[in-house]
């Protein structure tokens, strides 16, 4: 997994709530057995019309906006557990998604892929949207160490929460597998104990 420490970038605004993982990556693109190339089909059915022509009004097709930060409406990533949604976002080039709420499974999937799901208050989310509306070239700085996101040049900043364990993993680029394997003895002891207790 790639490390994440600090990022300064412009942002892409997607003012839609309840964006589900079927919109992030539709099911028909889940037939492959690797993790490569999902970015091409990120938000496919919003990005392209049924004739595969880009929808000019969709934000990813609008040259005004670019950057490695996606700012989205409330309850992002609900629905299916497909990790392909996180792979599509990272493959496209996003490193941070900012919303006022993330669905549980998506949040975990993002963290396991070095994509930071950054939750802010609805009020601060609105400030981010406003800043982009006023000037699409506004940059934002996300600092994982201090757990802050700032609107550069405006003095506006917000703190965010992250699970301390996941923070360490992201800062160092570790994943859970390494950690779990180091616990093998404890796991085997647990199995034996449970066997005798309830005979599973």
């Amino acid at each position: 997994m790639e490390k994440f420490v600090k990022l300064t970038s412009t942002a892409v605004p997607l003012k839609v709530e309840n964006v589900d993982t079927d919109q992030i990556i539709p099911a028909r693109f889940l037939k492959v057995t690797n993790k490569i190339g999902f970015g091409e089909n990120l938000f496919r059915d919003w990005r392209y019309n049924p004739n595969n022509e880009p929808v000019a009004s969709f934000v990813l097709n609008d040259d005004t906006y670019s950057g490695q930060i996606l700012v989205v409406g409330d309850n992002f990533g609900c629905g299916s557990s497909r990790e392909h949604a996180a792979w599509a976002l990272t493959d496209y080039g996003f490193k941070v998604v900012v919303s006022s709420y993330f669905a549980d499974i998506f949040k975990g999937n993002a963290l396991n892929n070095g994509l930071l799901p950054l939750q802010v208050s609805p009020e601060f989310l609105q400030k981010l949207f406003n800043a982009i509306d006023e000037n699409p070239n506004t940059t934002f700085t996300v600092d994982l160490e201090s757990q802050t996101i700032s609107i550069d040049g405006s003095g506006q900043q917000s703190e965010f929460d992250i699970d301390p364990f996941k923070k360490v993993c992201m800062l160092n680029g570790y994943d859970d597998i390494d950690f779990l394997i180091s616990k093998k003895d404890a796991i085997e002891t647990f199995e034996k104990q449970r066997q005798t207790e309830i005979n599973f």
Partner: peptide, 17 residues
């Protein structure tokens, strides 16, 4: 439900964090 990274974690350790 779990994501694919977690599927790999359970494969490797029968556990999740």
């Amino acid at each position: 439900g779990i994501g694919t990274s977690q599927v790999a974690q359970v494969f490797a350790s029968q556990c999740l964090i």
